[in-house]
């Protein structure tokens, strides 16, 4: 009797439609990833090089007001910046990969990264390193890079829309990259060049509440758009004609999604500099975990991206006596992870 009654629900579950099982699994996965991010954040908050390399104990925090200030005013904004940057870059990467139906695309491909880098470098040599100017300039040029890519793509006379946008994006990237090269050449090697170089390698050493809050609205807005649009992304990934026939205003919606992706990328670059490979590796990993369905891939990518960048930044600030550039670490770990991912047989999907 007992046996049959306990077997009943199991049986039901087994007979549940496939999509329902899929959804339940996806939700569980998201919950685990979310919990992972929270745990990593909590642990990271107590990890650092003060007063010694390792963890701050609760007793130390209670006794030492400096430790409290350190956690509140330095570690917390830095961790939040790392989470937001990770989410932004991973989210933007995933969206661009879907829109362009190309798994090797990342925000850099539309000229956004290089243009934002150019804007920041330009601001450093023209106005000195004042944080808000560098940020504003990075966002302005980042958006300008996208606009330029977009306008150029409209004038290219052959190929589909995606190909045209990619081509013009590559050209715009190269244009701004040469601009960055020129600025590096002109920069003052004692004062400006180290700043530009550190900035091009990415890093969160100087992040306090002020720069974070300046960039936060843009990031939150962009991420909200990406999250809300995740239902439509599956359609946008289809051929234009098919998407259109399914009731999508292809151009308008794609532009909105692209704009949101660029916005969060430029805002990330404006606080953390160029942090590579997050936008490439994390979306791949997210799709491996959750499948290509954007409804689950987007939140998975956001959570994974946040966790990945927080972990990399932990290494950047704790591993050595100097700050290791964050971009170097994300690229190293990202590339290794990417290779591992590519050489392993696909588990599913």
């Amino acid at each position: 009797m007992n046996l049959t009654s306990s077997a009943q629900p199991l049986d039901l579950m087994a007979r549940a439609p496939l999509w329902l099982q899929y959804r339940a699994r996806a939700h569980r996965r998201l919950l685990v990833l979310g919990a992972l991010l929270v745990v990593v954040l909590g642990v990271s908050l107590f990890l650092g090089r003060y007063p010694q390399v390792g963890f701050l104990t609760p007793a130390q925090i209670l006794e030492d007001p400096l430790a409290q200030r350190l956690i509140l005013n330095l570690r917390l904004p830095r961790l939040l910046a790392a989470v937001m940057i990770g989410m932004s870059l991973a989210g933007a990467g995933l969206v661009l990969q879907m829109v362009f139906s190309n798994p090797l695309v990342e925000p850099g491909f539309l000229g956004v990264s290089q243009a934002a880098a150019f804007g920041a470098a330009l601001s450093i040599i023209l106005f000195g390193g004042a944080a808000w100017r560098v940020q504003a300039s990075a966002v302005f040029f980042g958006l300008g890079g996208l606009a330029l890519s977009y306008l150029l793509a409209r004038r290219v006379r052959y190929g589909g829309w995606v190909l045209r946008l990619l081509l013009s994006g590559i050209a715009v990237s190269a244009l701004f990259a040469s601009g960055v090269g020129l600025i590096k050449y002109l920069a003052d090697p004692l004062r400006q060049l180290p700043e530009i170089t550190f900035w091009l390698l990415g890093g969160l050493a100087g992040v306090t509440w002020k720069p974070l809050l300046a960039a936060l609205p843009l990031m939150v807005l962009g991420l909200v758009i990406l999250i809300l649009m995740r239902w439509r992304l599956n359609l946008l990934a289809l051929e234009d004609e098919v998407a259109f026939s399914l009731g999508v205003a292809v151009h308008r919606e794609r532009l909105l999604v692209l704009l949101a992706a660029v916005m969060v990328t430029a805002a990330s670059i404006s606080i953390g500099g160029l942090i590579g490979w997050v936008g490439l590796l994390v979306p791949q990993l997210a799709r491996r975990l959750s499948g290509a369905d954007a409804r689950y891939a987007v939140p998975t990518a956001l959570l994974l991206g946040g966790t990945f960048v927080v972990l990399c930044d932990d290494l950047a600030r704790v591993l050595s006596a100097g700050e290791i550039p964050l971009g170097v670490l994300t690229s190293l770990l990202g590339a290794v992870g990417f290779l591992l991912l590519m050489t392993r047989p696909a588990v599913k999907v």
């Binding site: 650092g48 090089r49 003060y50 007063p51 010694q52 400096l66 350190l70 330095l74 570690r75 000195g128 390193g129 004042a130 944080a131 004692l190 004062r191 700043e195 550190f198 050493a205 100087g206 992040v207 306090t208 600030r317 006596a321 100097g322 700050e323």
Partner: peptide
């Protein structure tokens, strides 16, 4: 390229640095 946290661990009463370090190290 030391970070602020590391400097704080040395328990300084004052930190002296070049003017151009203000943004990256001084502000934090």
């Amino acid at each position: 390229n030391v970070g602020a946290e590391q400097v704080v661990a040395a328990q300084p009463d004052v930190v002296i640095m070049k003017t151009y370090m203000a943004e990256s190290l001084g502000k934090p």
